[in-house]
């Protein structure tokens, strides 16, 4: 019985660690990664090297970096339930923030000022997307095949977005095989 309550306490600690970071970090996934690292290292929950190993795995998963990070770290610390509590801690604050704002904004969204404000936000978002694109390109090991596959993918998908998934898999597999990757079973 005592073991059970200790376990629950640890799970709650993991939940609140991620909950706190999620509440305090506006601006999405990448902004949160350093906060998570600092919090985990400060509490001696994980070694720095282990943290970067986990972070590397998130790169080969689809979806939000911070959500995947919480899943993997939670799992590492306390198994299945650790993963559940950590990811719920990350997800609950934005979830309720969105619900509250979504129900508020509907009554104001016809206002011309809100419309203009949103248009401005949208324009800045394009600038932010340019930054994300710039960073991804900078981190790419560029070679002839890379550039060719990139252009091929972009040209096909600009004309036909329905092929996105197919072309994505196609490009990744081709590049993987070109770099000498093998799939052994």
């Amino acid at each position: 019985m005592r073991n059970l309550s200790l376990r629950n306490k640890e799970l709650m600690a993991i939940f609140f660690l991620f909950f706190k970071i999620s509440v305090l970090t506006i601006g999405g996934g990448y902004a949160m990664v350093p906060s998570v690292e600092r919090a985990l290292l400060k509490k001696d929950l994980i070694e720095e090297e282990e943290f970067y190993d986990v972070l590397a795995i998130t790169q080969s998963l689809p979806g939000s970096v911070i959500f995947n990070l919480s899943l993997l770290i939670g799992k590492k610390l306390k198994g299945f339930w650790g993963a559940m509590f950590a990811s719920l801690g990350v997800m609950i604050p934005p979830f309720f923030a969105i619900i509250i704002i979504a129900s508020l904004i509907q009554s104001y969204s016809d206002s011309i000022y809100i419309q203009k404000f949103l248009e401005g936000c949208y324009i800045a978002t394009v600038g932010l997307t340019s930054l994300v694109f710039y960073k991804v390109i900078k981190n790419l090991n560029v070679n002839k095949i890379n550039i060719f596959l990139f252009l091929l993918g972009v040209i096909i998908l600009v004309f036909n977005r329905n092929l996105t998934f197919f072309i994505f898999v196609f490009l990744v597999v081709l590049n993987y095989l070109y770099e000498g990757g093998r799939i052994k079973c």
């Binding site: 694109f133 790419l140 994505f168 490009l171 990744v172």
Partner: peptide, 8 residues
Amino acid sequence: SLKLGTAV
């Protein structure tokens, strides 16, 4: 390879 796909 995934980075390349992401760039696209």
